Amino acid sequence: MNKVTDTLRYYSCHEWVRVLANYAIVGVTDFVTDGAITLIGSVNYERLYAAGDQIGVVETHSGEKFPFYVPVTGYITGINNHPTKDTRNPYGKGWLLIVKIEIPAEVEKLLTEKEYAGLIQGVPYHYVKAS
């Protein structure tokens, strides 16, 4: 069952965002995975990433791979090298990135809970795949 929470914002490619001060904690929603995940790719901590830049691929415990994007413009300040997805709380320890937000107005452009729930309604579970 997909769980969407109203304390988060969502990127249309199934990333969730929790804003704490000037930082965005970013992970993937349980729509695309319900188990362990790994971020594959390299990050340049000195680079300013634009919203929508692909920074790697997320691989699920079942071997599925899909692209992972930075949902807001900013500098990546942290990566979780050992994310876990607790199916009871997929939006906790499963975070992947911390981004220092450079354009705060972009947060308001992210999807709300209701908008994201509408996006995934009627779409087959785990449909996103990387090429």
Rank of each mutant, 00 (worst) to 15 (best):
V107R: 09
S42Y: 02
K85L: 07
G35L: 06
W16Q: 09
L110Q: 02
Q54L: 06
D6W: 09
G56Q: 06
R88W: 10
S62V: 05
V17N: 12
E64R: 13
Q121V: 05
E115R: 11
E102M: 05
V128M: 04
V26C: 04
K3H: 06
L111K: 06
N81D: 13
C13E: 12
E113W: 11
V28Q: 00
I76D: 00
K85G: 00
I40E: 14
E64S: 02
T7F: 15
P71R: 03
L110E: 04
V4E: 10
V28G: 02
K93I: 11
Y75T: 04
S131T: 09
V58M: 05
D86A: 13
D86C: 11
Q54A: 12
L111G: 00
G52F: 03
E106R: 06
Y125C: 08
Q121D: 12
Y69I: 06
K85M: 15
T77H: 00
E102G: 08
G122V: 01
N81C: 09
S12L: 10
V72L: 00
I40H: 13
I98M: 12
Y49T: 06
V43Y: 07
I37D: 00
L110C: 03
V107K: 11
T77F: 04
R47W: 07
K85V: 01
K85W: 08
G63K: 09
H126L: 00
L111D: 02
E108T: 06
N81S: 13
A21D: 14
K109E: 08
R88H: 15
D53K: 03
G94Y: 10
T77G: 02
I76W: 00
I120W: 01
K129W: 01
L20R: 15
N80V: 09
Y91V: 08
K93A: 15
C13G: 03
I25T: 15
N2W: 01
N81T: 13
I79A: 00
D53H: 05
M1F: 09
E108L: 02
V43R: 09
L110S: 00
Y45F: 12
P104S: 03
L110G: 05
G94V: 07
Y91P: 04
D6Q: 15
V107L: 11
G74T: 03
N22L: 10
V57W: 13
V128I: 05
N89I: 12
A36Y: 10
V72Q: 01
N2G: 01
S62K: 11
